[in-house]
Amino acid sequence: MISSNLIKSAFATSLLLCALATGASAKDGVLRIGTEGDAPKFSMADPSGNVTGFDADIANGICAELKLKCEFVVQTFSSLVPSMDKDRFDVIISGLGITAERQKKIDYSIPYATTPLYFAVAKDSPLAGLKSLAQIEKALQGKSVGVVTGTTYARFMEKRMHGADLKTYDAVTQLTADLASGRIDVAFADSPTWMDFLATADGANFTRIDLKIMAMDAPDVLGHGMGVGMRKGNTELKTKVDAALCKMINDGKVKEASMQWFQDDYTIPCK
């Protein structure tokens, strides 16, 4: 019992220390940002807890514009929205796609970027040379197609490409692993995913179908690009964040970040 008390008090002390070190409370002069931290290139938490990636650059840019200090809170994707509801942080910056359905629950800033989407198949697949969405939809009948859960493009496959056997994955690495092992015939994901995968040894036998699909092609399911998520009715913050984003877009800061992480410009112009 003595030892368990010792552990308890040691734990309590360490809690206090952690609490002091990584404070995440509502304070003036601080913008608290919720992000998932395990999305390559977008939101990556390193072992010491720093967040880097495209989303982090956007966040730091907004903080600089608003003259606030950025404070990142790294949490699993599914706990982000309820946590923001309960004021654990002020905004979510985690590559959130803006859709009408989700806007019932949270508010969004203006969109700042959108990534093009591509199908990927084995090089010797009959689908490899297809040129139009209609052709692809026809060829996908009865084929197994993989997407990542929680993305707008998973929704696109569900609603628009009927007749395909849809498989959903929790992470991009799992999707590409199953494409490589031959469990699925086709995979559908954003361009950064394919840039990475096709360059690896596993990806050598695969190729992108040369048909670029953008959010604007089907805004009702693919949404309107990525935005910063905010609590409903927080208009004061929304005005500020929108202004900051618009300035960053016009200054070319968003383009700069996009070029750095994706070697391509995914900026959506500010209206």
Binding site: A24, G37, D38, A39, P40, M44, A45, D46, P47, G49, V73, V74, Q75, T76, S78, S79, S83, R88, A171, T173, Q174, A177, D196
Partner: peptide
């Protein structure tokens, strides 16, 4: 407990798996 923002072993592994792509 990772859902309340604590970085325990499995969550650390999940983050590492995600961003290093070696699940």
């Amino acid at each position: 407990v990772s859902v309340v923002g604590l970085q325990e072993l499995m969550r650390t592994a999940a983050i590492g798996a995600g961003i290093t792509r070696s699940p």
